[in-house]
């Protein structure tokens, strides 16, 4: 055998889709978010995109979806890889149908996983990142309770990781009862820094190896 043989010139690789790292932003667009809060949030979304695409693997692996809740629940952005994500400009009005929003976010994740499985796409544990300045309002209490129970079951079975960020006047105690993880309190309207952190965290997750304990960056933008 010739020692000049270059295996990398003769061996071809399987074309598998990139593993995906789904992240739903579940955003409160109720009336109380009007003004500086919603503007800061919009600015934060721009930052999120900019930061994600700085990392070429994260740009291809992290998939972003946006669900808003006010008097109704809307899928503003269905799942899209970070490189193709075009941040929307959100406006705020109406009530806070948070329970329905949580249901919708969990539905989206379930559908997405089914799609991944049907197409042989490997994936990481999905994240839902909820941002609110209030508490559930304008929907039946049992909707919220059902959402909370479903969320807790999904967390327990590792189907999702759900994070809550409270802004300004958010009812932190109520939020703490809905999710499993302690809600984080955003300092002021520091959305930009928060989204820089979220991008860094998603990048870390999307490149983690088998059984890596993913070390998330320290949180400088809020408090537990």
């Amino acid at each position: 055998m010739s020692d000049t043989l270059r295996l990398d010139e003769v061996v071809e690789f399987a074309e598998n889709p990139e593993p995906r790292c789904p992240c739903v932003l579940l955003l409160d667009t109720s009336g109380s978010m009007q003004g500086t809060a919603i503007n800061a949030l919009n600015e934060g979304l721009q930052t999120f995109k900019e930061e994600l695409v700085k990392n070429s693997l994260a740009a291809r692996r992290v998939e972003v979806a946006i669900v808003t809740f006010d008097s109704s629940v809307n899928i503003v952005q269905d799942f899209v890889t970070a490189d193709l994500f075009s941040p929307p400009t959100l406006s705020a009005q109406g009530l806070t149908t948070m329970g329905a929003g949580i249901h919708k976010a969990l539905d989206l994740i379930t559908e997405r996983k089914n799609l991944y499985r049907a197409n042989g796409v490997a994936y990481y544990r999905p994240w839902i990142f909820m941002i609110t300045d209030g508490e559930p309002q304008g929907e039946f209490e049992d909707v919220v309770e059902q959402a909370s129970l479903r969320l807790q079951a999904d967390e327990a079975s590792k189907r999702v990781a759900f994070f809550t960020v409270g802004v300004e006047n958010a009812n932190m105690m109520r939020l703490g009862q809905i999710g499993v993880r302690s809600p984080l309190k955003l300092q002021g309207l520091n959305f930009v820094e928060m989204f820089v952190w979220l991008s860094a965290s998603m990048s870390a997750v999307s490149q983690s190896k088998v059984d890596d304990q993913v070390a998330l960056p320290p949180i400088g933008w809020g408090t537990v």
């Binding site: 490997a122 994936y123 990481y124 544990r125 590792k158 983690s208 088998v210």
Partner: peptide, 9 residues
């Protein structure tokens, strides 16, 4: 055998 998520085994 990587469990549900790609970063588990």
């Amino acid at each position: 055998d990587s469990g549900e998520y790609i970063n588990e085994t």
